[in-house]
Design a protein around this nucleic acid. Structure first.
Lengths: 197, 197
DNA sequence: TGAATATAATACTGTTTAGTATGATTTGCA
DNA sequence: TGCAAATCATACTAAACAGTATTATATTCA
């Protein structure tokens, strides 16, 4: 095997191990020794690929920046589009990885401006942008941004309890029921002066 | 001054100092030396009043359990009641103390079942219970709990950005605008089969 | 006043952990 | 084959921090 290839693989193993640990145990709860062991590598090797724990963490977060929302709006009826969006959004946000990532952001983001900026590119911003654009295109709204944020919050109304370990993530059928309920309330409740374009 | 009185004061000083530090720096970020200094006291004295850091923390959290929601529903029109509730709720939840407390809960609650139980008595549960009862009393609803949770989430739609340091807490006028918007959407959007009792 | 209690001041123990140092061993490559 | 880079194994340093120990000084109260 080529040398460059091996280096790439090792680097990926280290970052993958770090991601697993950071997501499941948080920043403070993850030691560099644990990262090394999880990656099947020595601590020196870890430090050959990153200058410090903080850099490893920051590198990881910005690496995650490439992830897409995994949903695109189409031209179906408003209700149908919102329903599909809600399903995709809520399903994604009830996944373990997403829940862990959100906890991590919450835990760490207030510690430094640098981290806040890193995180800002993630969270729900892709989803939010798509929804906001869609609402603006389809409806005449006073403030599409606020309205989009409200719709997203309605979808996530059960998430805090999940995040705090007071209930398990919504299973598929509860997600469907919840999305229907939310889309119903939202559509009927939209400001009166909206018009479908 | 009586001895018992002095003891009580000292105990309060220590717990107050610990609360300030835990709220602003988190559990890990707070050292017992810092608590002692903040309370103007020696570390031994701190340990005379609590057996360990974990106990100090737990004692604090359960001490906060007595706090009321500070709002009671009346007999005005539905819209007016919801509006008043929204104002009180959102104002409280945009306060620094409440924001810090929520961050703390988020940060620590996943670490142990004991902490989760402690926290369970707080968070929005008082507010939630009152709202849920009110909706059940006033309306014919399929699931007052879910609906109450959705209303609360709508009110808090901007809070995540605040929590993550991406915007400052909503000032009074934005709170009012937001509450009006939310109550409007919510009331118009409620499931059709509701009837005012 | 004098015994008992609380506190101060200070230093210490033990543990955890980020990061470094060293010397031996493997591996790609010319 | 033989060199150079990467890795391993292991041990170390330095700092932070929870919790303890000691000795001396105040304070309460009988």
């Amino acid at each position: 095997m080529k040398a460059a290839e091996k280096l790439r693989l090792k680097r990926e193993a280290i970052y993958a191990a770090a991601e697993r640990l950071f997501l499941s145990h948080g920043y403070e709860g993850t030691t560099m020794d644990a990262v090394a062991e999880e990656a099947g590598v020595t601590k020196q090797t870890v430090y050959r690929y990153c200058p410090s724990k903080a850099d490893l963490f920051a590198g990881l977060i910005s690496g995650m920046g490439e992830e897409r929302s995994g949903f695109s709006f189409g031209n179906s009826a408003l209700e149908e589009e919102l329903h599909q969006f809600g399903l995709a959004f809520l399903t994604a946000h009830m996944g373990e990885r997403n829940l862990s990532f959100f906890r991590l952001v919450m835990n760490e983001s207030w510690k430094s401006e640098e981290l806040r900026e890193l995180f800002a590119k993630h969270a729900q911003s892709r989803w939010f942008d798509e929804l906001s654009d869609f609402l603006e295109k389809r409806l005449e709204l006073p403030d599409a941004g606020s309205i989009a944020q409200i719709f997203i919050s309605m979808l996530l109304s059960e998430r805090n309890r999940v995040l705090m370990g007071r209930r398990s993530p919504l299973p598929r059928d509860e997600i469907m029921t919840h999305v229907s309920l939310v889309v119903g309330i939202f559509l009927k409740g939209l400001p009166r002066d909206h018009t479908v374009k």
